[in-house]
């Protein structure tokens, strides 16, 4: 266990060194946050019917989304793992007496947490100081906040389990371009980081409800804003947890299968 923790720690510490990338990310996220908010405000003012979330719920959701984007998205990939597969430094990882899946899992987790640590505070502080209705609102209740934290924790592990799948698939395809990038794009859209799930057309909501992606961030964010009631969030959190276990199992199996026929590059 200690080895995995050390992997996580090193990746986290080295991740904290990328400050300038983080500042660039922060400004992009402010920009996108404002653009999204303008669009939604216009949408609400045009008086659409059956809008699934209130404006303040939506805006808080959007800011949470921007503040935690580095954690909950799948497209900012850990370049190191793909490079490892492409260039064959995976040789060294394979020569270690540890489970490669979990080595990668904790690397991805460390990288994600470092990235979000650098970006999270400026965004949260600034957006919570913004005037109504533009700012980040408070959680629906204290209990709601606790449940949000629990669900976000499971969500972080879930997105890690998904993110680590892509380099594992790349072991077979040898290039992350094409199919893998397509998978990542679809996964990101279905997780609600572009448009919150409640705004999806009904058929797409049905599709995404049987997939793991909406349990990454959509569920915790909606718990935070109170769009999902505390007493009806037990089942979704259980499903979230089941997906996490399932994806870890799938990742391990896929890793095993792909390692059997992996072609280690270079030498």
């Amino acid at each position: 266990m200690k080895a995995y923790y050390t992997y996580f720690k090193l990746k986290f510490i080295t991740g904290l060194q990328y400050r300038s990338a983080a500042w660039a990310g922060i400004s992009t996220q402010f920009f996108f946050g404002f653009v999204y908010i303008m669009v939604y405000i216009a949408f609400y003012e045009s008086g659409g019917k059956n809008i699934p979330m209130t404006l303040s719920e939506t805006i808080t959701y959007l800011w949470l989304n921007q503040a935690l984007l580095a954690l909950v998205n799948q497209f900012t990939r850990d370049e190191e793992l793909f490079k490892m597969v492409r260039e064959g430094t995976i040789s060294y990882e394979l020569a270690r007496p540890k489970n490669l899946y979990f080595m990668w899992f904790f690397k991805v987790l460390g990288q994600k947490l470092a990235a979000v640590t650098l970006r999270f505070f400026p965004l949260i502080i600034v957006t919570s100081l913004l005037p109504e209705p533009y700012g980040l609102g408070l959680p629906v209740s204290f209990i709601g906040f606790i449940v949000f934290l629990l669900s976000l924790t499971i969500g972080s592990l879930l997105v890690t389990a998904l993110t680590v799948l892509y380099p594992i698939v790349t072991l077979a395809t040898m290039s992350e371009k094409g199919i893998v990038n397509l998978m990542i794009t679809i996964a990101d859209i279905l997780s609600g980081i572009v448009v919150p799930i409640p705004f999806f057309p009904l058929f797409l909501q049905k599709i995404s409800s049987v997939l793991p992606f909406q349990y990454i961030s959509d569920l915790p964010f909606r718990i935070y804003v109170g769009n999902i009631q505390i007493n009806s969030c037990i089942l979704p959190i259980i499903i979230q947890f089941i997906w996490l276990i399932l994806l870890i199992v799938i990742g391990n199996l896929l890793m095993k299968k792909n390692l059997k026929r992996v072609v280690v590059q270079g030498g």
């Binding site: 080895a3 050390t6 992997y7 430094t89 060294y92």
Partner: peptide
């Protein structure tokens, strides 16, 4: 593997050594 590196690029070699201590 003379053509590849097992050391972490951004940190001193000694930190990688410590990681290897935990791995092994």
């Amino acid at each position: 593997f003379g053509q590849k590196s097992q050391l972490w690029w951004d940190i001193p070699a000694e930190d990688t050594f410590d990681l290897l201590r935990d791995i092994y």
